[in-house]
């Protein structure tokens, strides 16, 4: 499974970065989103994956069952997902405004004058 995850992470990084290198605002954003996915999955795999044992304390118990998944990477990823979402939303609106102001969606064509 780790091998599979490594392939997925690598694939997400590769496609995300390739998209960001296209000269298009929208693809830049799509790339950013994929980059975020890639990083999250990277943390997920680096933290070690466990099937079907969520870090929850069952009623009547005082600790989760032995072998439960590591909750810390999950918490980190959750934080990262939310931050990523906020940042991408801002970037998306920014990109939209950039398009409105410059009239092009080619980042290379907007030499910032003044």
């Amino acid at each position: 499974m780790e091998l599979l995850l490594a392939v997925v992470v690598g694939g997400l990084y590769a496609s995300g970065l390739y998209l960001m290198l296209r000269r298009s605002l929208v693809k830049l954003l799509l790339g950013l989103v994929l980059l975020g996915h890639a990083a999250n999955l990277l943390i997920f795999s680096a933290g070690g994956v466990v099937r079907g044992e969520a870090p929850l304390v069952a009623p009547g118990e005082i600790t989760p069952p032995p072998g439960a998944a590591d909750p810390l990477p999950q918490a980190l990823i959750l934080t990262a997902i939310v931050i990523g979402f906020a940042v991408v939303s801002f970037a998306a609106v920014l990109a939209r405004r950039v398009f409105e102001v410059t009239g092009t969606d080619d980042p290379a064509a907007m030499e910032n004058g003044s």
Partner: peptide, 25 residues
């Protein structure tokens, strides 16, 4: 001018953050 500058700034800093995050993970 702000818009174009901000786009570069935001993008490259986000890439930096993504690398940092990966490093932390």
């Amino acid at each position: 001018a702000q818009m174009a500058g901000a786009l570069t700034y935001v993008t490259l800093n986000l890439v930096s953050s993504a690398l940092f995050l990966a490093g932390v993970g």
